[in-house]
Nucleic acid binder design. Structure first.
Lengths: 264, 264
DNA sequence: GAGTGGTCTAGACCACTGT
DNA sequence: CAGTGGTCTAGACCACTCC
């Protein structure tokens, strides 16, 4: 037999999906629902937890429980990679034009909060393997946060790693004070003679940890898209490894695969 | 101030990540932990819920709470699309060789459970938009489940849509009895004169609904990768739309983007 | 059957949100 | 300040797992 809270959740789910409770609408208060279903408050709240986890409702402390409305999604397509690379060869004035984030989100520059922090670290086993360098190799770690001002929620949290020795010839690259860098990473690498040849995206998903949920401004019931982006230069060397975290409910990754034609 | 369960969860998290409790190891029983932290059983269990949601521990009813071990991941690369397309031109004997799922998972055919169900439906607004046809257009819906026998957990749940009229010239394509079809969808389409030119993957993530968690054999604390795969033929028409659900903790999608070289 | 986690209750008190 | 959800307790009883 299903549990009480499962049956209550199923009933409410049905009412939401049938439009009995519409998007954005407030559910009856918990004490009323508890009486309606003849259960204890805890059991009723357990049922609501289920729906929250499924992303169907949103709990607002001191306010009420509301049916979730669909969020606007940021589309992040791989076109961005070619676009960003091409931009690296433009003049500085041209590179100062709106960047790749504005392109993905369709938001104006003023609506975005940008934050960068740099520090030094050493390659652990995972990163050493990704870069093909010995464990302990000095790395530059760059943490970025790109947040939409209006929604008060972070869009993207990314941590980028570079092998320190390979970029040290341009000291400007070592300081977060120069961020946001016009032209982005492709241009930064260009200044030290590196051209990116291909980029490998590895995508998984998982629930956010407490810290990540906080940093990304994610509510319960939102999954995390975890993207490891590996950039390889024209000599076949891995030059950048970036771990990118995005809220699953407001992000859509788009990948197009062009297939070779059959022989006629 | 943080809540009691948050502080307990943080303490246990630290102990897990520091190796104080190693992978696969059983945590102390709940009554012991409750006494150790001087809280009620419910509060202690709330702390464990947090860790379960983060995928750090696994609760086994009647047995104990265990530190999660990392799962083996299925890599699903876009190479599969070209590989599958090329296979459509082979002889039937060759097409009967292990298919794309075996290729992704590295599992033998005998280790896989395959299940297909076909039925008829009509294009709703979403699908009509995707196909570029009027709402109400008759569609063939094909639901597939591919499951690993040994892990007793479904790997992939996918729902594929085809415009019925475009494939009806080969009645064999309308019956699930002919699944698994040697050579897969690319060969099926080949029999009605369709060649796929490119495939667009749109990736998002969200928590599973109760049904989906059940169907995919997912535990709490696992996110769902949701992939919409749109196949476009050489005339620019959308020929197949598939919604693919995968467990986020055991799937890794791999996309490689080759960039054009800078002019020298 | 002994030991484990899962569900559920009734009630107290705290914290946040709006007017 | 009234109304909402959030945390916490102590204790009862049920369901699963393994020996």
């Amino acid at each position: 037999m299903a549990t009480k809270y499962d049956r209550i959740a199923a009933d409410l789910r049905r009412k939401i999906q049938s439009g009995r409770f519409g998007p954005g609408e407030q559910l009856p208060v918990e004490t009323a629902l508890k009486d309606e279903y003849n259960v204890s408050l805890l059991t009723l709240r357990r049922a609501l937890d289920v729906l929250e986890m499924e992303g169907l409702i949103e709990k607002r402390h001191g306010h009420g429980n509301f049916v979730r409305t669909r969020r606007r999604r940021m589309r992040r397509s791989t076109d961005r990679y070619q676009w960003e690379k091409d931009r690296a060869l433009l003049t500085e004035a041209e590179r100062r034009a709106p960047g790749v984030v504005e392109r993905d989100t369709g938001l104006a520059h003023e609506d975005l909060i940008f934050d960068a922090q740099f520090d030094s670290t050493e390659a652990d086993e995972d990163l050493a393997d990704a870069f093909g360098v010995p464990v302990g190799t000095p790395l530059l770690r760059r943490s970025y946060r790109q947040q939409s001002r209006e929604e008060d929620a972070s869009l993207v949290l990314s941590t980028s790693y570079l092998v320190r020795d390979r970029i040290a010839s341009n000291p400007d690259l070592l300081s977060a004070a120069n961020e946001p860098w016009p032209g982005g990473t492709p241009h930064q690498l260009y200044t030290v003679g590196i051209e990116i040849d291909r980029i490998i995206d590895e995508v998984t998903a998982r629930p956010p940890s407490a810290d990540e949920a906080d940093a990304l401004g994610i509510e319960a019931g939102v999954a995390l898209i975890v993207l490891r982006k590996t950039s390889i230069d024209t000599t076949g060397q891995v030059v950048e490894v970036a771990d990118v975290l995005m809220a699953g409910d407001r992000t859509q990754l788009v990948y197009t695969t062009k297939l070779k034609r059959w022989p006629t």
